[in-house]
Design a protein around this nucleic acid. Structure first.
Lengths: 159, 159
DNA sequence: TATTGTTATACTCTATAACTATA
DNA sequence: TATAGTTATAGAGTATAACAATA
């Protein structure tokens, strides 16, 4: 370990950090950094650039709610319906999602996963589970429950 | 209230909700929703589309670390340096940030706020404080401490 | 050789408004 | 009139790679 003998730089501050000032105590700032870090770690785990967390969430929601309409899905994922159109176009073209017409209301679509979509989702789900286990380990079992509870309060309270 | 007499639709499920399935327990999914909700609420509070949370964070970090370089700032905000270039170009053009050459290393810039930048930041800071108070109320005083601690673990653990 | 910052480029995500087709 | 979804369009945000200046 040759690095062990490297002389430390003289510093006024103990570490070469940036002072956060008021940001230090802002929940919003930390939410952004944590979400960003989580996003990156998940994307890196999956590898495929075209299967990012947002696509994973869409597919998971369709799998859990077969026949869901695009509008319902857009509400659940907090996105405008036009945003969903683009994402679903991509998933349909790639043979992962099926847009079936809903017979009872011919304005809307009934979304479903294809067989291939279910396979891909299963693979993503193992990555997501592993990713979430990594997060669990960082915060501990009690921390996970507390964190989810606190995040849900924020999500529900800022409607 | 004429709606009071509207007959309820027969539903198998008690409310027209979307089932989250495994997402229900994923930290990453809730981080995204919470960050999104917080982002929106802050942006709405500020009004100005060109002063979003990311710009606010940049300005706050410069104010707290006058003379900071772009690279140091990019690390603190977890963005590539090329991303910072664009954002700083905008802030400089608008007269909020000053790029001064650092005499000791002429490759880098020493960033500072202009007088106008300090004024704008002060205004943003009051919005941010109000926004954070709103979040505080949602999670409670003990919840805030717990939440910050948990988020820091995630941020620090996913390097 | 390595680092700071810029530029060129491209891709994703997002939303608004106007549109269509149905209801 | 109202709703589901599409399209056209635009704007942020992000990153990679190649580059010039400096160390």
């Amino acid at each position: 370990m040759p690095k062990a003998t490297r002389p430390r730089k003289d510093r006024v501050t103990p570490v070469p950090v940036v002072r956060l000032g008021p940001l230090e105590d802002f929940i919003g700032f930390h939410l952004r950094l944590a979400q960003e870090a989580s996003f990156r770690a998940f994307a890196q785990r999956v590898g495929d650039r075209r299967l990012r967390p947002s696509r994973f969430a869409i597919m998971a929601l369709i799998a859990e709610n077969p026949g869901i309409t695009q509008t319902a899905l857009s509400r659940a994922s907090a996105r405008d319906k036009s945003t969903l159109t683009t994402a679903l176009d991509d998933l349909v073209v790639r043979g992962l999602v099926l847009r079936g017409r809903a017979p009872e209301d011919r304005r809307s679509y009934a979304l479903m996963l294809t067989a291939r979509g279910r396979q891909v989702l299963a693979r993503l789900m193992t990555h997501a589970a592993a990713h979430d286990r990594q997060l669990d380990e960082l915060v501990g079992p009690a921390g996970k429950l507390a964190l989810l509870r606190l995040l849900r309060r924020i999500i529900g309270g800022l409607d």
